[in-house]
Design a protein around this nucleic acid. Sequence first.
DNA 1: GGAGTTAATGTTATAACGTAACATACGTGG
DNA 2: CCACGTATGTTACGTTATAACATTAACTCC
Lengths: 144, 144
Amino acid sequence: MRTAEAICTKRGARLTDIRRRVLTSVWSSHAPIGAYDILAGLNADSGKIAPMAVYRALDFLMEHGLVHRLASLNAFIGCALADERHTAHFLICRACKSATEMDGAAVTRAVKKTLTAHGFIPEIEIIEIQGLCAHCSDQDVRRP
Amino acid sequence: MRTAEAICTKRGARLTDIRRRVLTSVWSSHAPIGAYDILAGLNADSGKIAPMAVYRALDFLMEHGLVHRLASLNAFIGCALADERHTAHFLICRACKSATEMDGAAVTRAVKKTLTAHGFIPEIEIIEIQGLCAHCSDQDVRRP
DNA sequence: GGAGTTAATGTTATAACGTAACATACGTGG
DNA sequence: CCACGTATGTTACGTTATAACATTAACTCC
């Protein structure tokens, strides 16, 4: 959280009140959280923030790498490695709902190689693997 | 299309009228197509099909590998390799809107390796790379 | 072929996710 | 102070997806 402020000031970006509250909300959820859940959290305490405000804050936070979006869940999650620019690859556990960034080096290499073969110039990489995390697969977790 | 029928009869699955029409609609779009666009296409000719019907048909078609869903676009696309069970990886061109299944062998290997290291058991792999395809990157296509 | 069963579709309503467009406030540098 | 760029407020709407329950069609076993 202090990191977030540091990053923003370093870049001359303003971590305003709403943005800070949205970021806090994202971090305080252990699992990926939807925009409207964030909204509900913010409006529980105080007033009436509109969806727009949340989406704008999320856009800002994503631009600065503080938050990632999980396309397959329509949800958002805090990024622990915000100061290094990177494309995130996620492992999403259907049992405990955790979403952890995986070590993507090998995958990124393989993807890059394949793309070159196709002559494709990448801009956004979405890699989201859903399944069971190590902890949950030890438990007795049946298929959906 | 004949392939689709063959697959369904082989599996004892019923390729009903709606399912057939949805599948045709998906195939007749060169780009990934949204559920409501499919719906509009069907309702252009004849009567009033409800969204539910389309989503149900899409679910069926996906179960049988005849169609894939692109999570990052909320859209659907026909699968050319429907009889082999496979996880599809897509290259999505932002210029021409094409979405082609890439050769995923190397990537799949890398993913599998990384997952093993994490002790993660995969069930669904979503890999969607957005960017510029070979053809469009030859043209003068600027960033968004 | 008719009764019982499962699969598929119809119907209605609503949930969940996301954005356009325009007005207003806020801060910073000249 | 005031002009300009950035951020937020506000309203309304567009898009994507599903819940819940009723009805119809197909299949099967005797």
